[in-house]
Design a protein around this nucleic acid. Sequence first.
RNA 1: UGGGGCGUCGCCAAGCGGUAAGGCAGGGGACUUUGGAUCCCCCAUCCGCAGGUUCGAAUCCUGCCGCCCCAGCCA
Length: 566
Amino acid sequence: MSTETPTPFERTDFIREIVAADLREGRRRSIVTRFPPEPNGYLHIGHAKSICLNFGIAEQFGGQCNLRFDDTNPVKEEQEYIDAIAADVRWLGFDWGEHLYFASDYFQQLYEWAVDLIKAGKAYVDDLTADEIREHRGTLTEPGRESPWRSRSADESLDLFERMRAGEFPNGERVLRARIDMASGNINLRDPVLYRIVHATHPRAGDAWCIYPTYDFAHGQSDAIEGVTHSICTLEFQDHRPLYDWLIENLPVPSHPHQYEFARLNLTHTVLSKRVLLRLVNEGRVKGWDDPRMPTLSGIRRRGFPAEGIRDFAAMIGVARNESVIEIEMLEHAVRDVLNRTALRRFAVLDPIKVVIENYPEGQIEELEVPNNPEDPSAGSRDVTFGRELWIERDDFMEEPPAKFFRLAPGREVRLRSAYFVTCREVVKDPAGRVTVLKCTYDPATRGGAAPDGRRPKATLHWVPVAQAIPAEVRLYDHLFTAPYPGGDDRDLFEDLNPDSETVRRGCFVEPCLADAPVGTTVQFERLGYFCPDPDSAPDALVFNRTLALRDTWAKLQAQGQRDPG
RNA sequence: UGGGGCGUCGCCAAGCGGUAAGGCAGGGGACUUUGGAUCCCCCAUCCGCAGGUUCGAAUCCUGCCGCCCCAGCCA
């Protein structure tokens, strides 16, 4: 990965410090990390934090980061998810090179290790039902009881385990358990299940197996097989670390990885739970996994967020063990920061009102040069056609402007960006009193937007020529949930859904060069925000998504005025 | 009542015994052909609370308090 601009945040964290110390003090000669998604859903921004951490560390310390699918539960996993996840990681800007792995590729090895454990008397086949096992497990405060099958011979367990693999038993009839300590305060050590019978077709292994290792029996050993040195996961796996270590110590694994845990990402005004996201999709609350309101990487991408902004965000928030909820404004800041630097400026009018320049010759047009990005002169410029009739934003005119309103009003002169100064002379309304046309005059001496006499209007408006304007649909997006903490105070999560998270505006006009803007590029509609073509867009029916609005101090002022009038 | 974690500004987060970085948000100002951007200034005498050790503590010790995770044959 390379970025044209240096990462804005040079920061370390407790995991990087551990890695650096391991290298410095010779405990490791090189490091290997991994990003281990389960292919049972789409990646979201929370995963991006982990991806940036794992790939970022590998990159920073000259190591390698594997993409390993943790595909040990065939009933939930699908090839569709595998493909989508790989595409999302690639989009985020990371490259695993040759190191694409699947836990399912290790099934034979894991099976053999399970046999080793049985022979060593450290695992046994249990005939208890799932309910019985639960009853025997004890509670948080009471120790568990040993299964009556715990003491059966290794030979008998071995025979049973082989028959489990051979498919002699139905789902759930028996499991393989580690023999550790039913009285442990750590429930994960109360003889955890290592293998269960699942007669299901695996997305990759097909029907080769009908017994599958659990997460605990697969994860650490997969790390060991791959030579992973630093196995980084989220806080809820802390309690699993003793089991992770126990298995590594009791199995002839080729390397000894260590697990480190960090706090997962939480964001205000959204939710990062695969379960809830799946519900939103299934119940039709959103248009799919890639709905622009979704916090999934595919949703964010469709929304127009640049990958670089996500990476910057990950660097901004840091990595720690404090459980935290990041205000979504921080994400939006990171995204605007990148977009401000890189997005080409364009003109678009979302809620048009017609301006007729009465002293501009009928039928005349001219091409005016408009900069593509004032922040980046190398972005060049484009020509925009100017004519007698233009569209401007309805919000940019007020018949009776309040004190702080600087835009167009009767008798007032404003600048049309990169064009001319115009003065409003007459307001035309329809019978209902709605403004339909603003008759204006322009000052020919202000071509390009500057006056020879040095006078400077307080406002500059964007515009689109009526004759050349292209109609478009624009979808405005806002937070998926109105509440910063959806479902807080025991509310039903869905009560907090924002009814206005998507607002579709038809009858918008955009400048001609937007007709063939490719999907995947985000531009700035000047003075409005950042927008990108939606995959739904067609040459004869353009559709743009609003990625993010520009910061709007005028709107803020108005809001303040409403709060405390006077 | 068991085990494992975490508590530094509204939200993140540095800090690792020598007297509270930075970012986001917020407030003020400058500048501006985007009320955008940029720039400048302000924003924790205090680090969950209470004791203790020390010349000196957010950093060490003790005790409280609060919050999170764990009782899937999910990951």
